[in-house]
Design a protein around this nucleic acid. Sequence first.
DNA 1: ACTTAACTACGACATGCTTCGTAGTACGAC
DNA 2: GTCGTACTACGAAGCATGTCGTAGTTAAGT
Lengths: 128, 128
Amino acid sequence: MKHKSIKPTGAELNILRVLWDQGTQTVRQVHSILNPNNESGYTTTLKIMQIMTEKGLLERDSSQRSHIYSAILREEDTQKKLLDTLVDTAFGGSAMKLVVQALGSNSASKDEISQIRNMLDQMEKEKS
Amino acid sequence: MKHKSIKPTGAELNILRVLWDQGTQTVRQVHSILNPNNESGYTTTLKIMQIMTEKGLLERDSSQRSHIYSAILREEDTQKKLLDTLVDTAFGGSAMKLVVQALGSNSASKDEISQIRNMLDQMEKEKS
DNA sequence: ACTTAACTACGACATGCTTCGTAGTACGAC
DNA sequence: GTCGTACTACGAAGCATGTCGTAGTTAAGT
């Protein structure tokens, strides 16, 4: 089995980001958030969201004149999939190299650091 | 200012991976490694490597009949750039969410775990 | 009723990526 | 030298993505 591999494109991810953060939205709302200065046209956003619906990335309620869209993909699942792809293509399969890189070039809060420590403890425990 | 943002495509990353791991290589060598069963043709690999050279991703020594290619991009730089992109597009800008995800769905060796711990220590130290 | 505004649907195009076939060229074996 | 092999160069085609324009429809205001 195996679901067809879901790999949102850049534009699709932007839209998913809005839906994940804001919940269900109309095309107009999504477009206003992503293009406050009309960098690209309304019908562009519309078209992409229509295609995403065909692809099974979004679902919509079309009972109203303005259709209302929501994400089908869960944020974490999508992130995991993209992460796996990046690990394979750019990090030669080593997720830990990726972690080290990410830690090295970004800053973390105290809470985040202790969260990560806890995860490491957990991983070590499972190792024995 | 800023160098033009270098974002290798999937096929390009495969080639870079070989060059990073193996050092300088001919097209034939790269192609044999990536397509042991001839999934795609030799001229495909050739063409992509030629284009990469035009783009400034590779350089080549063409003094021999078989040109010898090497990567211009450093592995770490490329990884960092792709990581940043992924953090922006898929993780809403939070590198630590990415780290947590990556740790959660992958396993690390003892050495890696302690390397990560050391990095966390370092980060905490710098925080005070 | 008419007009305007906002929406959906859809075709078309530009661009970039990947693929391949073909042509030309150099090398080596014989 | 001739032939076959391996190489480069390059044009062209298929596909996906992102872009937009236009047409058609619905709703609402006057």
